[in-house]
């Protein structure tokens, strides 16, 4: 029995790429700003931030199989609480960051609790509904949020104020967050999260309170979105209503799907593709939203596994059916 459970685990475990690959990647990303023209560094910083956002989202979407359709809420929450604390309450940088992350955690927990009240389909619906609600609040509460114009005048930390130093700061922070995420996802907690995706009913029979795990995952994932939001506010030196728009949520989901939602590095790859593509396209065409829609439709119809799909999942399918039959027997 132990062996079989372990088989299942190796099937659903998300194995990271070999360590050599990783080191090479980090070196390339670290050397990049010395080679490329400086106007591109801003774009690459944005790629890193969105990669963090998407990887955090993927904890819910790819690992746990939940349907977080409105993740931009939490990016916007981080960015706006940070921006309001700095611009309206005139706080200094460090306490504003800490307080903004704290606000993020609290509001995450409340929204998460509300979203998880219903069935799985209601979860997605509510997730998106809160996103639209948040967008409305941002648009209407002009004295505080600045409405469509947003808030500008967000400072960066003194030492990292330049474009290249800021890039390195973001890179460092994102790598730390990646380390935390991968530690979480490889811990027993992460295994249960993957179990939620594969067979939630079975976890319930094992006496596991799945709702609680989903809520914790929801909060962690929203927390990283908040971190990404704060970094994005620093990058653009302002908070704008595009940070909470539902199209950003859709973009984040597409990053996960295109890159490969069942792998750790998939969302990062997807983020690079989507951010660079969207920046290029929006220089030429006005209709980025529609193009993104087409990408979503095509991806979902014909490309669900993503670029970094796990081939091992396919070859292991017969093993799984062997694994599943005893469980079916015990259930019946």
């Amino acid at each position: 029995m132990n062996l079989k459970v372990e088989d299942l685990m190796t099937r659903i475990i998300i194995r990271n790429k070999p360590i050599g690959f990783l080191i090479a990647g980090v070196i390339i990303v670290a050397v990049l700003p010395l080679i490329i023209p400086s106007q591109w560094i801003q774009l690459f910083t944005q790629v890193l931030i969105m990669a963090l956002f998407a990887t955090g989202l993927n904890m819910e979407m790819g690992y746990a199989g939940m349907m977080p359709l409105g993740q931009a809420t939490f990016l916007g929450l981080g960015a706006y609480s940070f921006g309001i604390l700095i611009v309206k309450a005139h706080m200094s940088l460090a306490p504003a960051i800490v307080l903004a992350l704290f606000i993020c955690l609290i509001v995450n927990a409340i929204i998460g609790f509300l979203c998880l009240r219903g069935k799985p389909m209601t979860f997605g619906l509510l997730h998106m509904a809160f996103n639209i609600l948040f967008t409305t609040i941002v648009a209407k509460w002009i004295p505080i949020t600045g409405g469509d114009v947003g808030l500008s005048g967000i400072p960066r930390p003194h030492i990292f104020a330049g474009t290249v130093p800021f890039y390195y700061m973001v890179l460092g922070l994102v790598l730390i967050c990646y380390l935390i995420i991968s530690t979480i996802m490889n811990s027993p907690f992460g295994k249960i999260a993957q179990g939620l995706r594969e067979n939630e009913e079975r976890l319930i029979f094992l006496g596991i309170n799945t709702k609680r795990y989903q809520l914790i995952l929801f909060i962690i994932s929203g927390f990283f979105a908040g971190v990404a939001g704060i970094l994005l506010a620093m990058l653009n030196r302002g908070v704008f209503s595009s940070y909470v728009q539902i199209i950003l949520s859709a973009q984040a989901m597409m990053m996960c799907l295109i890159g490969g939602a069942y792998s750790f590095w998939g969302p990062t790859l997807g983020a690079a593709l989507i951010v660079i593509f969207s920046n290029t396209v929006s220089n030429y065409v006005f209709y980025w939203q529609g193009i993104l829609g087409v990408i979503m439709i095509v991806t979902v119809l014909g490309f669900r596994g993503g670029i970094l799909r796990k081939r091992s999942v396919k070859t292991n399918v017969p093993d799984v059916s062997v694994n599943k039959s005893p469980s079916g027997g015990t259930a019946g």
Binding site: I247, A250, M254, G290, L292, G293, I295, M296, I297
Partner: peptide
């Protein structure tokens, strides 16, 4: 995601 894409 498909219906969302259609909406866009």
């Amino acid at each position: 995601i498909l219906t969302m894409g259609i909406a866009f």
